[in-house]
Amino acid sequence: MTHQPIRFYQTGTFTVGNRLLAQEQRSVQAQAGRTNSLNSGHRACQGCGEALGARYAIDAAMDATNRQLVAANATGCLEVFSTPYPETSWQIPWIHSLFGNAAAVATGIAAAMRVKGRENVRVVAQGGDGGTTDIGFGCLSGMFERNDDVLYICYDNEAYMNTGVQRSSATPPAARTNTTMPVGSSTGARFGQGKNLPRIAMAHEIPYVATATVAELRDLEAKVRRAMEFRGARYIHILVPCPLGWGHGSAETIRMARLAKETGIFPVFEAEHGEVTNVSKIRRPLPVEEYLRPQTRFAHLFKPPGHPEIIARLQQLADRNIRRYGLLDTEAAS
């Protein structure tokens, strides 16, 4: 198990820090001297899950690589809000690629570093779900297939948020976006469409694939650290709620991510060479309704007369995740 939860210390490892833990047991984010890779003054919306996820992940990567890190960044929210010309929020070597070629650019950086004999410098490529699952998919699959020495991080907010909330292939069924409006007989994004990129990455049998959310910092940090122990292609898929596109309160970002995990909608696991090696168990099981109801993108499911049959289908998807990954611990959950 990558991240061994520490119990019985008041909040254990559930909170970001814990004054009762020894220094070496504390998270990167708890350190006063953390990199703050993505600095203040960025133009992300209030309560942005992606800004949070990016700082969590890149700070952890900086920590794991002794600050020898280069990042390539696909076009998308993250790129737009962090680098309006001529300012930048990045406190690391950072390059903006096209929307679709972040993986290829990162591959090039890694090759250059190898040629220059600087293999201690590690390379991260990052992008949103649009740049990853749609536009950059070809380059990404190529990077996986060649097993290039890059960690690709996808910040998944489940639609094209930067351009005004259009559906991507990571948009969940029944969600309302500006291109999947619940009008007439339509009830939002269709069932049976979309891609499950973590599973596609696993099908490439690359050394390391993991999913994470911004609700479980310690788990996320451990996965970045673990990813940096491998050479070759690695992929981390982080669920980052978007207050704007999902339609929840800006203070609810972390709660939404937590609910996605606790309902089984978003399975949190890690896999090595195509096989699942570890799953993050559900601590307090909840029906999917708890997750759907606070989000206006699912509001049409609850407006009278309501769509209990759609909610039931979403519950089935969650139940399948629970079954497939063994997310429920029948013994004492903690």
Partner: peptide, 13 residues
């Protein structure tokens, strides 16, 4: 009780 949660969860540092 200084759990660092506010310090950690702020998207804006």
């Amino acid at each position: 009780f200084e759990c660092d949660n506010c310090y950690g969860v702020c998207p804006d540092n």
